[in-house]
Amino acid sequence: MVTEREFKDFMADVCTPVAVVTAMADGRPHGTTVGSLASLSLRPPMVTIALDHRSALLPKIRRTGRFGVNLLGAGQAAVAGAFASPVADRFAEVEWYVDEGLPRLRDAPGWLVCLPKRFVTGGDHLLLLSLVARVSGARAAAPLVYGRRMFGTHSAFADRQNTSITDQIAAFAR
């Protein structure tokens, strides 16, 4: 039998993208950090996220039938930490605005508007299979990832961002 500790230690070595999932309910913004964002389908465009069954955000998404995905970039570890914490107002420390009726973080490099189509139970989490209704702001930025219980980035991409296109082409041609 695999222990919870063994599984957690193994999965700590798997880097995951970091995003803040948001919803608007009762006129207030709500959000949480996830490390479970994954592409599911191209035709139609779909993604998956997983939320704990006890997530306060889950009933709001079920009720409204939509959510936003704010893909975080390198340097936004504090934002990820704030939305993973138990503080009452997670939006107090970030700049955000309403986009298509959903809370959008101003500095997030990528944005999706999603419509959950199916909820699938997976142990202590619920997997949301969701149609992507809109993609916006997907700009070339080093991604924020979570691995080995730390926030970081893909260093090769971050290094390339600081190099001119001419230098990148020259390096590739070598």
Rank of each mutant, 00 (worst) to 15 (best):
R90M: 13
Q161H: 14
L129T: 11
L115E: 04
M46R: 10
Q168A: 06
R148S: 07
T48R: 07
A138P: 05
R63H: 10
L127T: 09
D124L: 04
R160Y: 12
P59N: 11
L58H: 10
A82H: 10
H53T: 02
A92N: 12
S155D: 13
L115D: 00
F83L: 05
Q76L: 09
G147T: 11
P59V: 11
D52E: 13
R139S: 14
F91R: 11
T163A: 15
R139E: 15
A88D: 08
S136E: 13
S136R: 06
L112C: 06
W96Q: 05
V135R: 08
L126E: 15
A140P: 11
M150I: 01
G81C: 07
Q168M: 06
D159W: 12
G101K: 10
F157I: 15
D99N: 03
S136N: 08
L115M: 00
L105T: 05
D107E: 11
G152L: 07
G123Y: 12
A108L: 01
R160W: 13
G65R: 00
P109L: 06
G110I: 09
L58F: 11
H53M: 08
W111Q: 07
L131P: 02
A84G: 11
A77M: 04
A88G: 03
N162H: 15
S155W: 02
D167V: 00
P86S: 06
R148Y: 11
R148T: 04
A171N: 04
S85W: 00
T163E: 15
G73R: 06
Q76P: 08
A78Q: 14
D99T: 08
E95W: 08
A108W: 03
Q76D: 09
G122S: 11
T121S: 09
R134W: 02
L112V: 04
A142Y: 05
G68E: 01
P59W: 11
I165E: 14
S155E: 14
L57F: 12
L129Y: 06
G68N: 02
K117Y: 00
A138I: 12
A78T: 13
G123V: 03
D52C: 04
S164G: 15
L127A: 10
A92L: 15
T163M: 15
L144V: 12
L144E: 13
A158C: 04
S136I: 00
Y97R: 06
A158I: 02
P116I: 02
D167A: 12
F157H: 13
G152H: 08
A80H: 12
L51K: 10
S55M: 08
A88T: 13
I61A: 03
A84L: 01
V94F: 14
A84Q: 03
V120H: 08
R90V: 13
I61R: 06
H154W: 08
L58E: 09
D159G: 12
F151E: 01
L128W: 03
K60I: 07
A138R: 13
P116C: 01
P116V: 02
E100T: 09
G65C: 00
Q168Y: 05
